[in-house]
């Protein structure tokens, strides 16, 4: 399968903004923290044509930052993002329309002062994908396809529920006729009953349009539901990546195992304790990541080797890549 969207050794640092006040404080001898936060470190991955790659991890592990870089919204500090071999960004600005994004919070990602018809049409009109005259018909068509009444085009976002807004956001992204769709936690802020509807809509449209997708979520069951392959992130790095079925059936990395074990389930067997085992400890600060394997302070299998040397992401016999000395 051909690789559509690739990341090669991508790193993203966020340096704290040094204000005039900070500079004065520093000149007067105060200590100003100028350490950059490394949100994503040396990540390489590829999204293949027609597949959905799920990206999972705890809050703060860098999955959204990686998603935004792959979507061409955020420039990497080092490394390269390529769409069919070409960079999706020039300088700080996105240039391609072939990648579109659906954001987490549909209450925030739609401009409150723009009618949803205009919100859907403005991108395609600005890029000449549709003429201004043909735009209303296109908007009506998209509203129908995401399961909304075409008559809603003249309404404002505040007149819709969260699920309906997310449908609008999906229509807005797909109206740009993208090849790749980046979904950044698209159902995380929705009610569980609405999540299923939006996921099914997403699955239907993905198949219908033959989309290549990057699906970011902290919800393992959601990712299992939609993904062909899964990448697990921990503290800015990918620790395991491979076929979704294999990873869910036999996770290799202790962190993936912990993540899967910590999903609360309804207990049918007699032992309630066995169903819910949280990973001990907390995500370390990205300002001072632990030496060696970043997961070693929380890992039951950690040895001196883990504390000293970071394990590379290396292939196993079934094609899964794992970054662990002991798996």
């Amino acid at each position: 399968m051909s690789e559509v969207l690739t990341a090669a050794s991508v790193t993203r640092r966020f340096a704290p903004r040094i204000t005039l006040g900070d500079r004065i404080a520093a000149a007067l001898g105060a200590k100003v923290d100028r350490r950059p936060v490394q949100a994503v470190t040396d990540v390489s991955l590829a999204v293949r044509k027609g597949e959905t790659l799920g990206l999972v991890g705890e809050s703060g592990c860098g999955k959204s930052t990686l998603g935004r870089m792959l979507a061409g919204i955020l420039p990497p500090s080092a490394g390269e993002i390529r769409l069919h071999g070409a960079a999706p960004m020039r300088g700080r600005h996105k240039t391609t329309t072939r990648i579109q994004t659906v954001f987490q919070d549909p209450y925030a990602s739609l401009n409150p002062r723009i009618r949803i018809g205009e919100a859907i049409a403005e991108g395609p009109v600005a890029h000449g994908l549709v003429t201004r005259a043909a735009a209303p018909a296109m908007v009506a068509d998209w509203l129908r396809r995401v399961g909304l009444d075409p008559a809603y085009a003249t309404r404002f976002p505040h007149q819709f529920s969260g699920g309906q807004r997310q449908r609008v956001a999906i229509a807005r992204a797909l109206a740009m006729q993208p090849e790749v769709l980046v979904c950044d936690e698209p159902v995380a802020s929705l009610d569980v009953s609405i999540q299923a509807q939006i996921l099914n809509l997403f699955l239907d449209l993905r198949q219908e349009l033959g989309l290549t997708c990057l699906f970011i979520s902290h919800d393992l069951s959601v990712v299992r539901h939609v993904s062909d392959r899964v990448a697990v992130m921990y503290l800015g790095r990918i620790v395991e990546i491979g076929e979704a079925g294999r990873i869910y059936a036999a996770p290799r990395h202790p962190y993936t195992q912990g993540l899967l074990a910590s999903v609360p389930k309804l207990v049918l067997s007699g032992d309630p304790a066995a169903s819910f085992r949280p990973i001990p400890g907390e995500l370390p600060s990205p300002l001072s990541p632990p030496a060696g394997c970043a997961f070693h302070p929380r890992c039951a299998k950690a040895t001196d080797l883990c504390r000293q040397e970071r394990p590379p992401l290396s292939p196993r016999e079934d094609g899964t890549l794992v970054a662990c000395h002991h798996a």
Partner: peptide
């Protein structure tokens, strides 16, 4: 951000 991501 959504507008920049389109990009408009």
């Amino acid at each position: 951000e959504a507008a920049r991501a389109t990009p408009l």
